[in-house]
Amino acid sequence: MIQFSSTHLIYLIEAARWTVLLSVLAFIGGGAFGLVLALGRVSQHKWLRWLSAAYIQIIQGTPLLVVLFLAYFGLSILGLDIEPIIAAGLSLTVYTAAFLGEIWRGCILSVPKTQWEASNCIGLSRAQQYRYVILPQAARIAIPPTVGFMVQIVKNTSITSIIGFVELARAGQIVNNSTFQPFITFVFVAIIYFAMCYPLSLASRHFERKLNVGK
């Protein structure tokens, strides 16, 4: 029987690179789409507000696993022979956008109303108001919860192991299949996840304190 060894540990750490890559993909894609959703939620057009609210409600009421299956099987229906990483990236983007959209909406709304009124008085257009007055202030408020949500993104990438994408969690299963030492294997997997997530948690808390000091 093969014992759990440093070779396995290196294999796990190498697989963790895919977890990082997938997290970055999800954050970029989900962030871009999430910003659109956040702006949609506070739009002046009723149907835009309604549409983005409906999207957020539906995605937040569906498990990520089911979103992942829909992306995986849905894309293959379109006749595309897809790699698991595309289905994984797409579903994480769709999922992340809904949560970041809702978080950022709160940040935009927490910018005082007087800022809107003042920038309106000096003749800025709606786009200029967002660009020069509202979003820079909202971004400052958004940093702690956004960094905090990155932890969720990293953890959620583990679910993509279910469609066979070899990232950290899947690598753990592969190692376990050859060593039959599930406890030590998955504890090491957990430690690697912790090493990625805990600094983000600490950073989020640090930014939050910094923000509160300024008040």
Partner: peptide, 14 residues
């Protein structure tokens, strides 16, 4: 700071 999936694996397989 660890995924639920890994926690489930530790409890069930570990």
């Amino acid at each position: 700071n660890t995924p639920l999936l890994v926690q489930i694996f530790i409890v069930y397989f570990g």
